[in-house]
């Protein structure tokens, strides 16, 4: 069996002909296997969805309970048979509930990793290396310039700045699913116990994380109704990145704008966005994690998707691993 007989790109997404299912399809399909809850991977409108319970919960929160006709939960390490194809889910370490999907058939093992990272994350289970013949890797940060420092060091800089500028509010831009909760959890681990203020768009997902046993401490809505302007002085406020470019941000005194993202590695990107305090915290693998993971999986062939395919393909060539870009459409970087 050739790898492309088992999985191949189609306009809807990655398709498995013998199993008749798609992985993370971008258009509504009959049967979808979903790696994680970010909206470019998990869309509403499929007939049947197979995903981890947490991913299903998150899709329900975002799209409403009727997001699919029929859902089936699968635990990490569990295997199911889909039309004669063996499918199992394995932790990806990306966000809560995120999984890689191993597809096995006729002696061929392909892992679709979805999005993944190797740095420790207190809000989700760690990445698990799954041996395979073909490894499908993301390449969001697939350039040698992307090297994420330990997230705890980045949070330490944020906390130092909050001490150094006690009269200013620190506004931290973080994506709603995963990044925001990880940042909050890391701030707590950094010893910060005061209330953290939230933009309304984050509230439900934070509550969901808390219900899953991830204690985020005292979270308050960042509303002005109950508090006067000066009261946000010295506060840490978490919001979606777009919220801080919006009129919403005007309620805060002389804010320090921070942004938690792997893109913040590049100074010019921080500067363009008017970010004063870039926090290089990513839920995607950096260059070193990507290349180390490729080697660890033992894959003889690598398919590279969403991101900077060319550099990672080049690296594989230099290291004697067959590689090709897998041109899937529709994936953006909501997750970072």
């Amino acid at each position: 069996m050739r790898p492309r007989d088992l999985l191949r790109p189609r306009p809807e997404g990655l398709y498995c002909p013998p199993g008749d299912f798609f992985i993370d399809p971008v258009r509504p399909v009959e049967r979808a296997l979903i790696t994680h809850g970010h909206s470019d991977h998990a869309r509403a409108g499929h007939t049947k969805v197979l995903a981890t319970q947490q991913t299903l919960d998150i899709m329900g929160l975002r799209y409403g309970e009727g997001f699919a006709r029929q859902t089936q939960a699968i635990g990490p390490g569990e295997t199911v048979d889909v039309n004669g194809v063996r499918v199992s889910f394995h932790n990806a370490g990306h966000v809560l509930g995120s999984a890689q999907i191993l597809v096995e058939h006729g002696g061929m093992r392909i892992v679709a990793s979805g999005d993944y990272k190797r740095q420790p994350d207190p809000t989700c289970a760690p990445f698990e290396v799954v041996a395979c013949d073909v490894f499908i890797t993301e390449a969001t940060f697939g350039l040698p310039v992307f090297r994420h420092p330990p997230a705890s060091e980045e949070i330490a800089r944020l906390l130092r700045s909050a001490t150094q500028f006690p009269e200013r509010a620190h506004l931290v831009g973080a994506y709603a699913l995963g990044k925001a909760q990880r940042v909050i959890k890391l701030i707590r681990e950094g010893g910060y116990e005061a209330p953290i203020y939230l933009h309304g768009a984050l509230q439900r997902l934070c509550e969901y994380y808390a219900s899953q046993g991830i204690d985020l401490g005292d979270l308050q809505p960042a509303t002005v109704e109950n508090s006067r302007k000066g009261e946000f002085a010295g506060a840490i406020v978490i919001g979606t990145p777009s919220a801080f470019a919006d009129r919403w941000a005007r309620r805060f005194p002389d804010p320090v704008s921070a942004f938690a993202s792997g893109w913040m590695r590049i100074r010019q990107r921080a500067k363009q966005r008017g970010v004063e305090l870039p926090l290089i915290i990513s839920d995607h693998s950096d260059w070193d994690e990507l290349t180390a993971t490729i080697i660890e999986t033992g894959a003889s062939e690598v398919w590279v998707t969403h991101g900077r395919e060319e550099a990672l393909v080049r690296w594989c060539e230099l290291n004697g691993i067959a590689a090709r870009p897998l041109h899937l459409v529709g994936y953006e970087d909501e997750g970072d």
């Binding site: 350039l143 040698p144 090297r147 010019q268 070193d288 550099a311």
Partner: peptide, 25 residues
């Protein structure tokens, strides 16, 4: 590898910053 350096430099645009980032750890 010069090709990888080329991709990196193109992306970052600043020599000092590119070298600081890609320098082997």
């Amino acid at each position: 590898d010069q090709i990888l350096f080329g991709y990196s430099y193109d992306y970052v645009g600043d020599l000092a910053e590119t070298v600081s980032l890609v320098w082997p750890q």
